[in-house]
Structure formats: C-alpha cells, structure tokens
C-alpha cells in the first residue's frame, strides 16, 4: 500500500468499487424493473446473468470483439426471457416457480456449455480513464469507468422517460397495474408481458457480459454470487422506479466493495464478514420494506406477490 492516501483510500476504494460492482446490479435490476412493471416477476434473471456472462465470453473469444460478446450475451438473455414468458403465458402457471426453474436451468446450461471457456482468455472490454489527470494510482483506479456503466445510466434515464412519455411505456404500466383495464382497451396482456420479459432479460444478459468481460473479467463457475437474486430485492427497495434502481445499485455495489477496500488498507480481520455486506443489506431491506400491515406503495397491482 503506497501513495499516502491511507485511510482516505477506503471511501475512495468504495466509490471505485461501487462504480465497478454496481453495473451488473444496475442492468439486472433495470431488467427486473421492466419485467415487474408489466406485472410479472422473473426470478430467473440470476440464471440469465450467468448465461449472459458465459455467452459474452465465448462470443468475444471466437470473434475477437468484446462488444459483439455484449450483444451476444443480451440475445442469450433474451431467449431465456422469451422462454420464461411463453411458459408463464400458459394458464395457471406461477411466474415465481418458473423463475426458479429458469434460474437453475440458466446456470446449469451456462456451466455445461461454458466448460471449454474456463481456460482460454478472451479480449475484454476497455475502461474509460476519468482519473488520467491524477498522479495517484488509487484515484486513477477508482475513476476507471466502464462504458457499460454509462450505458446503464442512460438506460435508467430513458426507461424513466419512456414509462411516462411513450405509448409502449404506458402500455407496460397499464398491463402491470390493471390487466382488466388493458384488456378492455384491446391490448394483449400476454404479448406485452412477453416483450417486457424478453427486453428485461436482454438487459440482464448484458449485465452478465460485464462480469465476464470486464470485472472480474474471466469466465468461471463462481462468477456470479447471487447478484441476479439481489437485484430483485433492489427493485423493491427502489419502489419500481428506474432512477432509484440506479442509486440502489450504487449502494449495493458500494456494500460489495467494502470488504476489498478495507483489505486494501490492511484491515484483514473480518474480511468474510465485510464481504457479506450486500447480503446483509438485502436482508435488512427486505425486513424494513415488508410488513404484514402495509402493502408496498408503488408496487404494480398485478404482481402475484402483491395480490
């Protein structure tokens, strides 16, 4: 440990870590937000994330272009999302059970197909150096931002705008809040949910590509540590608002970066404890937001858990 920042390095490392670690949270939660706004829960996004990570790495390895990898990861996610939506469109199918099935299927399929890609190294995404002005390596490393993170911010902003100002956005809200009203106006509830789930899974797949192609930047079976599931809690915490999803993702990212940041200044005791921070945060949020006496404000009316 050098550079003389000392303990100040901890918040800086947390910020840097948050910018890095939050990106998959951001994409998965925006995807989940879109899906839930249409009145369905897709718990399978964890599987989509892992599948996206594997596909992104594999495509990047074969084509030599990490950006094609990102696209491929998105489309792998989209296919899984379509699968989820088609099964849920059948009568009397529970979206949560299908989601858990999809989570196991997605991870299993990724491990199966991904075996050959554990060893070889694929070209990775490059970061934008916002800290180039500084001499401090810590500042430079903290301000190294991936373009996908910026893409995520733009996505959150455009989703926020689209839910209010576009026909598609308002149709998704309508289907998620009152399927009867949507049917009365002639919209196909199942088709809208299919689209929303597919797009949401595309986003989650892109989030997976970030894991394998930027940070940590390799493909192995321990790549995701439940980010896909935590993103579901995060959407509830964000009250189904895309911009709040961004802040919540940063918070979760910061919590996840706490352990490594403390370790970097030499605090090694309780390393695993600090690494558990995001999970503790998830639990705390679930406890704080769930109450037998209140329904969640802002929850789409058609969600099977709020009905």
């Amino acid at each position: 440990m050098d550079s003389g920042l000392g303990w100040l390095g901890v918040p800086l490392a947390v910020v840097g870590g948050a910018l890095r670690v939050s990106t998959p949270f951001l994409f998965v939660s925006l995807g989940e937000c879109l899906t839930e706004k249409s009145g369905r829960i897709n718990l399978g996004l964890e599987g989509v994330l892992v599948m996206g990570a594997m596909t992104g790495y594999a495509v990047s390895y074969y084509t030599g272009s990490p950006w094609l990898g990102v696209l491929g990861a998105g489309f792998a996610g989209l296919l899984l999302g379509v699968l989820h939506a088609l099964i849920c469109n059948l009568p009397r199918v529970n979206d949560i059970a299908v989601g858990i099935g999809l989570m196991l299927f997605g991870t299993g399929l990724a491990f199966f197909l991904g075996k050959p890609f554990v060893q070889p190294s694929a070209p990775l995404l490059h970061a934008i150096e916002f800290g180039a002005w500084s001499d401090s390596t810590q500042i430079r490393s903290a301000l190294r931002v991936n373009p996908l993170f910026i893409g995520g911010i733009l996505l959150a902003l455009s989703m926020h705008w689209a839910f209010r100002n576009t026909r598609w956005g308002m149709v998704v809200r309508m289907v998620g809040d009152s399927a009867d009203a949507a049917r009365a106006m002639g919209y196909s509830v199942n088709r809208v949910r299919l689209m929303a789930t597919a797009c949401g899974s595309f986003f989650a797949g892109v989030g997976g590509a970030f894991l394998s192609l930027y940070y940590p930047g390799s493909w192995n079976e321990g790549l995701s540590s439940g980010q896909g599931l935590m993103a579901v809690a995060l959407v509830i915490f964000a009250r189904w608002r895309p911009i709040a999803c961004f802040w919540a993702a940063l918070l979760f990212g910061g919590a996840a970066a706490l352990g490594p940041a403390l370790q970097s200044v030499g605090v090694t005791g309780g390393y695993y404890l600090f690494n558990a921070a995001p999970y503790v945060l998830t639990l705390a949020i679930m406890i704080a937001t769930c109450s037998p006496h209140r329904t969640l404000a802002g929850a789409p009316g058609e969600l099977s858990v709020t009905k």
Binding site: R167, M170, R173, D177, S178, D180, A181, P300
Partner: peptide, 29 residues
C-alpha cells in the same frame, strides 16, 4: 362498467390519453 377500468397508478390525464385508439408512440404531454 360496474368495475372501473381506470389504471390505479396512472393519472387521470394518462388514463384519458391511453384510452384512445391512436396513442402516438411518443406522447407530447
């Protein structure tokens, strides 16, 4: 209808505009 067909989370203005058959792709509020 006996059971209202308004979307609860939407404002009155949003409900009215969305009831039209020709909602533009981007709504100029």
């Amino acid at each position: 209808y006996q059971h209202f067909t308004l979307v609860p989370s939407m404002t009155v203005a949003e409900n009215l505009v969305m009831a039209r058959d020709d909602v533009p792709a981007v709504v100029n509020w």
